[in-house]
């Protein structure tokens, strides 16, 4: 920070800022200071309080958080079922704040697919699995949708999806003739039917036992790997972190921490092992959320002392109090 910049300096600085890529330019999902306020009985509840999130294309990630942390709100916003109060949200180049009803419909048809927690609510009870999978393609009413070839194409795709998710044997069964795990995998197939860029899943394993839950995660991985679909899973289950490569935790309407999992080859032994590392999120204003257990452990309150070191920043408890008092 130099004082007395010349005009040339300023011009240069502005040009540099302009040429800098915009926030989230390379991401599929961009949430920038997203705010959502609910008003009920005259009481305002801030479900999202300036949430920042970037998801790159092809990621398989999970959003975790306690009940009421705002993760479902975020999910609904991303699904196009809710509009944020303020901030910016873009998915696959579409601005979620300014979409018209028509855009929203196209968005639901082409960009996102979703899976809800309740297995029974993802599927129409009176249609077979194959029909359920074909339905979104039918509903989107693409040109030539009624022709024989289009119908055959839809059927082919539906069966392919079912096969990929290993529920092809259920194609002529109705939801009530299937187990919960099968229903949920069919639901994933339904969500994938429109060939969406993003697959959103809200507590997809909430009603399932852990073993079946693992199968479901396997299905998500399959979709992610074979179709390249970006998958965002919302859950309250911290154990999910073991199943996905990136886990973002939401607390009080903001993203707080992030766990990245990657496999590393141990230089010493040559063994491959999976390393999970927890990070704190740093937002664009430079704000940082410290995990509660860290702050309580050191009795940090109100303010902390920061020191910039060559390769890190040290955060220490406030020590100015003694002199002040």
């Amino acid at each position: 920070m130099t004082s007395d910049p010349t005009l040339a300096d300023l011009t240069e600085r502005v040009a540099a800022r302009r040429d800098r890529p915009a926030y989230g330019h390379d991401a599929l999902i961009t949430c920038d200071r997203l705010v959502r306020v609910f008003t009920a009985d005259g009481v305002e509840v801030q479900a999202l309080q300036g949430l920042d999130l970037l998801v790159r294309e092809g990621e398989l990630m999970a959003l975790v958080g306690a009940s009421g942390s705002g993760k479902s709100t975020l999910m609904n916003i991303l699904a196009g079922l809710d509009t944020p109060t303020a901030g910016a949200a873009r998915v696959a180049g579409r601005d979620l704040l300014t979409m018209s009803a028509r855009d929203r419909l196209a968005y639901r048809r082409e960009v996102v697919g979703f899976v809800w927690q309740q297995t029974s609510r993802n599927l129409l009870p009176y249609l077979t699995s194959a029909q359920n999978v074909a339905l979104p393609m039918q509903l989107s009413g693409r040109p030539g949708g009624r022709s024989r070839s289009a119908r055959r194409a839809r059927a082919e795709r539906a069966l392919e999806l079912l096969e990929m998710l290993e529920v092809a044997d259920c194609r002529d069964r109705r939801p009530d003739e299937m187990s919960g795990g099968q229903q949920q995998r069919v639901a994933i197939a339904v969500a994938l039917a429109g060939d969406p860029a993003v697959l959103l899943a809200d507590e997809p394993t909430g009603e399932l036992d852990s073993h079946t839950g693992e199968q479901i995660f396997a299905a998500f991985r399959t979709a992610n790997e074979r179709l390249g679909t970006t998958v965002v899973i919302v859950t309250h289950d911290q154990a999910v972190a073991n199943e996905v490569s990136r886990t973002v935790a939401i607390r009080d309407g903001r993203t707080s921490t992030e766990v990245l999992r990657r496999s590393e080859v141990d230089a010493a032994t040559g063994d491959e092992k999976v390393v999970a590392r927890e990070y704190a999120m740093l937002d664009r204003a430079g704000r940082l959320q410290l995990p509660a257990e860290y702050t309580t452990a050191l009795g940090m309150r109100d303010r902390v002392a920061l020191e910039l070191e060559p390769d890190h920043i040290a955060v220490r408890p406030d020590d100015s109090g003694r002199e002040d008092r």
């Binding site: 029909q131 119908r151 055959r152 059927a155 069966l159 096969e163 044997d169």
Partner: peptide, 18 residues
Amino acid sequence: MTERPSGRPRTAASRVTV
């Protein structure tokens, strides 16, 4: 995964479209 013996594409198309 059990394969059904019936000729798939033709019949399936009529069964899949709602």
